[in-house]
Design a protein around this nucleic acid. Structure first.
Lengths: 204, 204, 204, 204
DNA sequence: TATGAATGAGGGTTCATTCAT
DNA sequence: GATGAATGAACCCTCATTCAT
C-alpha cells in the first residue's frame, strides 16, 4: 500500500480573491472531468482552463488527490442540500410514505450533476475515497430521519438497517443512471425502490 | 471520449509453452494488484514478477488495458463457476428458499478472491468496464434461475426485477466486504438480504 | 558513426525451395513498403506476409538492412534491364537523338515500380545506400553508351560529364514523379530534359 | 498512410529564458545529428546535450518530428538568407551572367552547414518533408529572380522552367557534396552547371 | 531446415510537482 | 501572491534479433 500524501486543502482562503480562484479551479476541474473524462484530467489542464497558473493551483491544493477530494466533497454537499430540502418533515407518516420521501430525495440528489457523479464513481481510480462523502452524509441523514420518523420501527440493529437501506438506494439509483435511464424517467425506479424498502422495513 | 485500442488478446498461443506464459502473467498480475494496489500495477512489474520478459507480455496482451480485462474476465468466470455450483436446482421451493439459495451463491462467489475483487472494482480507473463481466453473467444466471424456479412469480417486467435483485445483492455484498466485514462473518448479511428480497418478491 | 553489420545476404540459396522462400520474402517486403510505408516495415510483418516464420527470414537475411538492400538491388536490376532494352544501339546518330533515347530509357526504367522507388528513396532512413545501386549501374550504362555513340564527343573529363548527365536525369525524373506527375504524362519532361542535355553536350 | 501528429511548436515562449532553452535544444539537435547521425538522434540525448530536461524539450516541441522539422526550417532559412545576399541585383545582365550568379548563390547556401544538410536529406526517414523547406523557398526566389532579370526570357511555362532549373541545381550540388567534393573545391561544378543551364535557357 | 516463443535494450512521451523570478 | 518555465522519474510499448524445440 502506498503512503498517501495529506489530501486536505492546504489553506483555507480567507481573502475574497482567493475564494474566487478556488472556485474557478473547482469549476474547471468539474468541466474537464465531465467533458473529457478522468484520462484527460491533469492539473495543468485544470489550471489552464481555470485561467490560473499551475503554481496558483498548487497554492490551494497540495496535490492532485486533494483537488479531486475537494471536488467530491463539494459535490456531496450539493447533493445533501438538495436531499434535505426534500425531507422537510411534516408530522408522522406511515413507513411507505417515509420511504417514498427518502427515495425521492435520493433521486433528486443524484440529479445535481449526474455526469460528474458518474465520472467520480466510475473513472476516478480510488472511487472508494470518493464514495466516503456521499455515503457518510447520506447515512447520517438517513439514520436521523429513520429514528425520528419511524417510532414504530425498533430495529435491533440500527446500523445494519441504515447500511442496508442506504446502500440499496444508492446502488439502484446509480445502476439506473448507468444502464437503465428509462427506469428513472418513467418513475418506475422510485416506485419499485419504495416497494422494496417498504416491504423490508414493515416486516421488522 | 478517447477511443480505446482493441483490448482482446493479441494471439492465441499455439504451443504449450505459451499457455504457461500467459498463466504466469495473469497470476503475477493478480498478485501485484492485490498486494501492491493498482498504483503499482505496471506492465514491467507484472512481467518481472511473472519471470517473463516485457516483450512476452505484449505478445499476448496488446496493452495494459487488455491485461486488466483478461484478469477481470477470468475472475468473473471463476465467480460464476462457484455460483453455479451453489445453484444446483432440486425441485420446487418457496421463494424465500430460492432467494436464500441465490444470496448464498452470490456470497460464495464473492469469496473467490475478495482482495482482487475489491481492487478491480475500487482502484482500477474504469471500473465500469470491469463490472461488465460480473454483471452480465450474474444477470443471465439470475434471470434463468428466477424464471425456472418461481413459476408463481409473474413479474410484469422481468428485466426490472432482475435489475433490482442483481444490483441489490451485489451492492450489499460489496458494501459489506468493504465496510462491514462482520456482517458477512456472522451471517447477518445473508439473512437480511434474504429477508429484503423475499419481502419484495412475495409482494409481486 | 555507428558500425554497420554485414549487409550482404547470408547465403546464396541453392535449392529451389529456398529460392521460393527468398522470393516470397522480397515480394512481401515490397508490398509492405509500398502499401504501408517504411514506418510499418518490420521484419516480423514481412515474414508474416510472406507466409514464412521470422526465423526463416533471418536465415536468408542476416538483418533488416540486408533485406532492404536486397530489395533495392533487385529493383535496380529490374530498372537496368528495362533501360538496356531501350538502348539497343542501331548505328550512329546525332547527339540529340542519343540523348532522347537515353532520357526515354531512364523514364521507362523509373516506371518499373514507381511506388517502391519513391519509398526506397524518400522514406527509408539511409537513402544514400539505396541510391548506390541505381546510380552505379546507371552511370556505367551511361558512360559506355556515351563513349560508344558519340565519337564527336571528346570531353576532357568523362567522369564529370557522366556525373552531370546522370544526376540531372535522375533528379528531374524523380522530382517529376513526386511533384509534377503531369510533366511525365504529357511528355513535357522528356522533351525538356532532352533539350537541356542536348544543349549542354553540343556545346562541348 | 499513418496520420501524423501536429508538428508545430507547442507554445510560443514568453519569457526570455525560454528562448535560450529553445536555442539550446536546436543547437544540441544539430550537433547530435551531424556528429552521431540520425541513428543516435533521440529526444533524450538531445535534451541531455542541451543541458535541459526532457520535459523542457517536450514543452516546446510536441514530438520528435516537430524538432526535426524546426531544425530543417531553421536551416532552410539560413540557406535562404545567404542565397539572397548573393543575389543583390545590379542592373541588367546576360543570361549566362545571371545563371552564374544563381549557381554561385546556391553553392554558397549549401555551405552553411553541409554536414547537417546531408544528414537531413539522406539519413532522416522522411526526407521528403525536410526537402519541402529548401525547395519551396528556393523556387520562389528563383522564380522572382528569373522573371525580374531575364526579360528576354519568355518561357511558355514558367513553372516548368523553374522546376527544371531548381531541381537541377540542387541535385548537382547535393551530388557533388556527397560523391565529388573535388568538383566543388575546384569550381568545376559552378562552371559546368552554369554552362548547362545557360545553354538550356538561351535556346528558349 | 523451419518454427515461433522469448528477449530486452531502449525509445518517445507524460504529467505531477517545484521554485526562481 | 502569482507566474510559468523547468524538472525528471517513470511509464507504456516496439521491434530487431536469438535460440530451444
Amino acid at each position: 500500500m502506498p503512503s498517501q500524501p495529506p489530501a486536505t486543502p492546504r489553506k483555507r482562503p480567507q481573502q475574497e480573491r482567493s475564494q474566487v480562484t478556488v472556485q474557478a479551479i473547482l469549476t474547471a476541474a468539474a468541466h474537464i472531468l465531465t467533458e473529457a473524462g478522468y484520462d484527460h484530467f491533469t492539473t495543468n489542464k485544470v489550471a489552464e482552463r481555470a485561467g490560473v497558473s499551475i503554481g496558483s493551483l498548487y497554492q490551494y491544493f497540495p496535490n492532485k488527490a486533494s483537488l479531486l477530494l475537494a471536488l467530491a466533497e463539494h459535490h456531496a454537499d450539493q447533493m445533501m442540500q438538495l436531499a434535505k430540502d426534500h425531507l422537510e418533515t411534516t408530522g408522522d407518516r406511515s413507513i411507505p410514505e417515509v420511504i417514498r420521501q427518502i427515495v425521492a430525495a435520493a433521486v433528486a440528489a443524484h440529479a445535481v450533476n449526474p455526469k460528474l457523479h458518474l465520472v467520480l464513481h466510475e473513472q476516478v481510480p480510488h472511487s472508494e475515497v470518493m464514495r466516503q462523502f456521499d455515503q457518510a452524509k447520506m447515512e447520517n441523514l438517513l439514520r436521523s430521519f429513520l429514528v425520528q420518523q419511524c417510532d414504530q420501527l425498533q430495529p435491533k440493529n440500527l446500523d445494519l438497517t441504515v447500511f442496508m437501506v442506504e446502500r440499496t438506494i444508492r446502488a439502484l439509483i446509480h445502476g439506473a443512471m448507468t444502464e437503465h435511464p428509462e427506469f428513472l424517467q418513467t418513475g418506475e425506479l422510485d416506485q419499485e425502490l419504495t416497494a422494496l424498502l417498504s416491504a423490508y422495513l414493515l416486516k421488522k
